[in-house]
């Protein structure tokens, strides 16, 4: 399964990354090599084996905490590090051109 520049460009779009032509070319080469290496996993798994929850540790630990209301960040704190905000809202560039 080789990776084409089109694959990289499509994946970058899905991941909301804007790449230059040079980056696409570089990632195409690197990801091609890495995924080729990863393809060896198909030798490890033959036939259908169920994919069980991997870590029994995690399964046992899934205890939800009590649903108690506790103080959280106020609006001012939540907005304090936004690149742009106004009147208690996050502000972003226009969505529809």
């Amino acid at each position: 399964m080789s990776i084409t520049p089109e694959d990289v460009a499509h994946t970058a779009k899905l991941a909301q990354l804007e790449l230059t032509e040079a980056e696409i070319e570089r990632f195409c080469r690197e990801l091609g090599r890495i995924t080729e290496y990863m393809a060896q996993l198909s030798e490890a798994i033959t036939g259908d084996e169920p994919s069980e929850p991997v870590l029994p540790l995690i399964k046992d630990a899934q205890a939800l905490r009590d649903d108690v209301v506790v103080p959280s960040f106020d609006q001012k704190t939540a907005l304090s590090q936004a690149p742009d905000s106004k009147d208690g809202f996050f502000r972003v560039p226009k969505v529809i051109g």
């Binding site: 990776i3 694959d7 990289v8 994946t11 991941a15 990632f27 995924t35 990863m38």
Partner: peptide, 12 residues
């Protein structure tokens, strides 16, 4: 970026 791309690719 490389890992985000790789991760997005293997999940796509």
């Amino acid at each position: 970026k490389r890992r985000i791309l790789l991760g997005t690719y293997v999940l796509s």
